[in-house]
Nucleic acid binder design. Structure first.
Lengths: 109, 109
DNA sequence: GCTCCTTATCGCCATTTAACGATAGGACTG
DNA sequence: CAGTCCTATCGTTAAATGGCGATAAGGAGC
């Protein structure tokens, strides 16, 4: 397994507010991305670095390849994961900053 | 404003695991409850104790009373809030244990 | 260039969600 | 007990979601 595409977490702090209308929208958007068990499982896989490549994620889930690809798109669109082209494959990895942001927003409740 | 219906947070720890298939379902379910800005705003209102009574919540949101009532039902069904009858009104309040559980699940990612 | 492998996108269908007005029901007040 | 206030539920509609197979697109390697 090659994790070269997955960056180590950085520790820059996020200065955006954790409450207000914009924060509500942001939290709702991130929560929606995690509102499906398959997407939670994908995030967990990537957090554990068990898998990075799309094909392996498909193998771990009881879903069709096209369905998994859609879930990956949802997670990517909200910034929770990132995909980088790695030869013929695509290597997905967590975006630690977004996950930290989510924790901050939840913590602010 | 009367907050007598809203209990103070207790600190009992939750022994359920924070990963695995069941935890995935649980996290997805809680995330879905927060996947709408109006519901995030309701949780925030209750966290700030700005309002406890359904009618006041309706006043704070640009939505019809029936719509707000449905959002409250979603939050209640997943255990994030609780409603108690207070004379002719209904007093809603956060369920701190569920919120802590959500934080634990998010933290476990 | 052709072919294979990998992933994204398209089209379709069934189900769920969100919104509202209207209505029902429960609890005080007079 | 009649009226009033507050909240939940019903019925409807439009839009979003989740699933799949089929197909397109883009590199790798022969």
């Amino acid at each position: 397994m090659d994790n070269s595409c997955c960056p180590l977490p950085d520790s820059a702090s996020d200065l955006r507010p954790i409450e207000g209308a914009e924060a509500d929208e942001e939290l709702a958007s991130l929560a929606k991305a995690l509102s499906h068990p398959a997407r939670v499982q994908i995030v967990r896989l990537l957090a554990r670095r068990v898998s990075c490549v799309c094909g392996e994620i498909v193998d771990q889930l009881p879903l069709a390849q096209s369905t998994v690809s859609q879930h990956l798109k949802v997670l990517k669109d909200c910034g929770l994961i990132r995909g980088e082209i790695d030869g013929p494959r695509i290597c997905y990895c967590l975006e630690p900053r977004t996950l930290r942001r989510l924790r901050a927003l939840i913590g602010g409740l």
